[in-house]
Design a binder for these strands. Structure first.
Lengths: 176, 176, 176, 176
DNA sequence: GATGAATGAGTCTTCATTCAT
DNA sequence: GATGAATGAAGACTCATTCAT
């Protein structure tokens, strides 16, 4: 809590996630983190590197949460359904702000290669994670589930409502 | 081409779509539109109202494109598949920038009620449009198709690749 | 009421008086007057000339009011005291905004000769008016009354209170 | 001289006093102070807070000057008359720009509570200062002197002339 | 006489970053 | 390791004025 670097990351993470990257200014970050302006540049070489740190940390945390939720079951079908429960849980805890990576993606152009890679890597991991649970299924089914998983996230953010998660879960339940 | 208001809208639309809303400054808009600063505020009362105009125009245009594509077929199944062709066509024409509405959604908080409404209304229209084609299907199937349609857009933006559209289309083809 | 020139003058007068000259923009004037922007420049060659028109009109109206109030009495002493009643009446009607001329004077530099002259002429008229009532008094007494009259205006604006008028009136009452 | 914060305050003070608050732009302030635009906002959170700083500083300086002048005499009557000499001295040194507080008052509406308070507090202090010298006099006499003191300031600004100070001083001299 | 469109220069304020201490 | 001061560029927006219709 009193480590400036960590405090900066946590503050920036919350702001980047809730307000977006460009809508968040350095001033707000340092003010809310209670850190001197120059200290930010002591620990992170630029605003963008702070963004990268956020995404990397978020990746770790999010995957951990996913594993925790899916770890409660053992059969593939139940584990996949538990993944949708994770989404529902996220929506409640984070007020339907959706996927941090897809949100940043929207603010990203092809020039931002470093950021783009982190985002894509995250999603590849998610896709691989689901596919790993569904090794017995054909790839088309694996993709099918992944695509429904993704739209469950996006659409519940859009409507500020859990119905897309619930519908997607229902569909997937019928599928497997 | 020489109507300043139209030129402003077209320029801003391109920039908002390609770079995002917050990453686009008024200066860039007026410079590329070749219009005086104050002229922007003569036609649009604020940057946000320019964004709203963009989204409204985009809604009209995009739905029209969707109707054109789906209008080429008559049977529900073929019309739905044609909708996915539309996505593929968009990706090529617009360089995988994805959905203008979902991109802006990422930069939007709950405070931005007017913007949020336009975005949600657009998606409700899309959902209703697809459901209308699938009136003979159960609602779960309708939602199923809608969710795959949405993730096809998002995921092809993410990977800068058409595979999500193609996979989604294949899945839907098997479904109907 | 429907004469644009008159409407412009009345609107600008209110705004200049209540908000000050520099704090009042052309936009607000034309918006509240319900007149096209260019129409303003049809009737007044500049914002400054609108200000001049305001001051001239105000001079006429204000002196008329002063004459009305003082006209109710006939003896010099009573007429002077009535002048102070006029100030109190103004304060109530105009919410303690003080003297329009002195207020504009504060926003005026030595370069603004035309404006400065109108302001000084107004005050010279006021001074002469009071002196005319007090022709039997020495000049020092005349000035004395004038100075108290002026500070009654300024100080009641400052404190948003009638006490300076009342005190000044009491002093003058004892004097004459 | 090389402290930017002080230089900003001095520059702004001069401009606010000579030109008025609204007529003075941030650009002019930073240009004449030789300071970067953002540096202004490092030291003062807004243009208005710069104005407040000006008024507070001015209050201190002005009262000190008043005390210095009145301190030269010991008898109440002489001290009061010295106060009028202070006004005359101000007029000469500052080219008849009058009272900084009353000038800003003219640009102030009831909404600007912070500014209004500083102005009123200044004048209350002036009034109390004069009253303190005249403790032996009745309150009406104290107010009488205060009102003449105030109009001496205002009217000499108006006419760009010392006569109002001299006349007021003469009157007060006869009074005490 | 009246107007909507257009503008260059200006408004106040914040941006992300660097530097001397 | 930490910081307050400093900055050039940019942010969104408004100014008073003119011109073609």
């Amino acid at each position: 809590m009193s480590d400036p670097k960590q405090r900066l990351l946590e503050t920036a993470s919350g702001l980047f996630y809730r307000q977006g990257y460009h809508a968040t200014g350095i001033n707000q970050v340092i003010a809310e983190a209670g850190v001197a302006r120059a200290s930010l540049y002591l620990h992170y070489e630029s605003k963008e590197s702070l963004l990268l740190a956020f995404l990397q940390q978020r990746h770790t945390d999010w995957m951990e949460g996913l594993k925790t939720f899916t770890g409660k079951a053992s059969k593939p079908r139940e584990r996949i359904l538990a993944a949708f429960d994770y989404l529902q849980d996220n929506n409640e805890r984070e007020d339907f702000r959706g996927c941090a990576f897809l949100n940043i993606l929207s603010e990203t152009t092809d020039q931002d290669t470093a950021i783009l890679r982190v985002i894509q890597d995250h999603k590849k991991d998610v896709r691989a994670f689901l596919a790993d649970i569904l090794t017995k299924e054909k790839q088309l089914v694996q993709d099918h589930v992944y695509l429904l998983f993704e739209s469950a996230i996006v659409e519940s953010q859009l409507y500020r409502n859990q119905w897309p998660v619930q519908e997607a879960k229902k569909v997937v339940g019928g599928l497997l």
